[in-house]
Amino acid sequence: MSDFWVSSGHHLLDRNEEGYLVLTDEFLKAYLARPELIPPPEACDAERRLYRRLSKTPRDRVGDDDILAIRDSDAQENWRALIGFRDHLLAHPTLESAYLSLMRKGTGNTPPLFIQQLVHVIMRNVLDDVDDPFALRAGELFYRPQRLTQHEGRVLLADEELVDGAESGMHASPLIAMLGEAAARNLDVLVEDNAAGYFARSDAFDMVLDFRHGGPGRTAFAGVMERWLRHMLGLGSQITPLERIEDDNWTWFIGLDAEATRIGNALWEGEGPAVPGIDRVVALFRLDLEAMAQARAPIYLIMAMTPQRIVRMKPQNLLVGLPDDVMAPAAGAS
């Protein structure tokens, strides 16, 4: 099977017998290679000593005195963020359990980028035995915001960072021009004819997902959500894409992003079709959990985009937004 998402750092981690990710020194050292942590030429001796020490033994205890000894205040902030995140990972048996703890108890001062990277490598583990490029591309939604456009009946999702951060001086492909941005490289819509090429370019995040109802992208995304629930909570489920919710007595929903949560709450409170932004709903799904009683009503999942047409999924909502009576073990629990 071809490798994918090498940039997640999954090859630097170990797995326990249950298949969950176990922290290694090599993975911790990769964080020290971040540009904001490499001491610049003008760095003080205290910062250089700390960097050398952790480069050799990345689990060494770092106290407040070590950080306060660093002269530059910005460098102090960067080190506090890294050490706080490192200590959180070290306090848990697996990366999955560390992530669940952050989502259930609060992220505190953990930088959003670190959480995004954590989801990246966990999702790489979730999809480790998957060879369907549509499922892998759908998995990118869990940790990379997408820009949405509609064209010839298709709902197209392209990587927001790639589109918005592209170099304006480069020639734009017709697809990028349609998305309204210039880009440094071409984007291709993922189809059966080019799907085999996904693996070689998976870390470029430069393939566009056709997310229309009934298409392979949306169906694959439903399957990825099923895998996420099983891996993280041990819950079996069936998730079905819907064109509309035809249930006057729906009792539970989960917004897959902040905008969807706002819209769902407004509908729940009875505002009806006049809810502001309801036209920005991108997709609907029905979630049926194996752990739920037969008589239990289904859970509906809502995905929406911002006024700027950005889909910014919050994968933790699937884990913490379930009904209280759905019992699930903690992932990676020792």
Rank of each mutant, 00 (worst) to 15 (best):
H171P: 12
R154P: 04
R147A: 15
N317D: 12
K29G: 08
G139C: 11
I67N: 12
M123L: 10
A258I: 10
L28T: 00
L233F: 02
D159Q: 00
A293T: 08
I115V: 11
R201W: 08
M327F: 14
R312M: 10
L179V: 09
T24M: 05
R309I: 11
A293P: 05
S168L: 14
V130G: 04
G234D: 04
T24D: 05
R61A: 15
Q117M: 14
L32Q: 01
V326T: 02
V119K: 14
L148G: 12
S173N: 00
I310A: 00
E18Q: 11
A196R: 13
I254Q: 05
L32E: 01
L175G: 04
V275T: 13
L322D: 03
L319N: 07
V208Q: 08
R309S: 15
L37T: 03
L82C: 02
A195E: 07
H231S: 03
K29T: 09
A283K: 05
F142E: 04
L95W: 02
P93C: 01
L256K: 09
D65R: 13
L162K: 09
D206E: 14
E36T: 12
V320N: 10
A184H: 10
R309F: 15
R185I: 05
L68W: 15
D129S: 13
G180K: 06
W5Y: 07
P35N: 02
D188H: 13
V326G: 01
I38R: 14
L118Q: 13
I239K: 03
L68A: 15
A98I: 05
G223Y: 06
L267S: 07
I302D: 04
L13C: 03
H10P: 01
G332H: 00
R201L: 10
H213S: 01
F4W: 09
T24W: 05
D66S: 04
A220F: 07
L13E: 02
R124K: 13
A91C: 03
Q150H: 15
H11N: 12
E290H: 10
A297R: 11
N16C: 06
A331Q: 03
D288N: 12
P273M: 00
P133N: 01
D247R: 08
I176E: 15
M327R: 12
R137L: 14
A204I: 09
Y31H: 12
L100C: 05
D279F: 08
Y51E: 05
G153A: 04
K56H: 13
G223W: 07
L68P: 15
V311S: 08
R154L: 08
R49L: 07
H92R: 09
D132R: 00
L319W: 07
L89S: 11
D87Q: 05
P39T: 07
G214I: 03
A328S: 06
V191S: 12
G332E: 02
D325W: 03
L256E: 10
I239W: 03
P276A: 07
D64S: 14
R244P: 11
G236N: 03
M232A: 07
W5S: 06
S237K: 00
R230D: 13
G9P: 02
P174G: 02
A258M: 11
I83H: 06
M103W: 14
E47D: 01
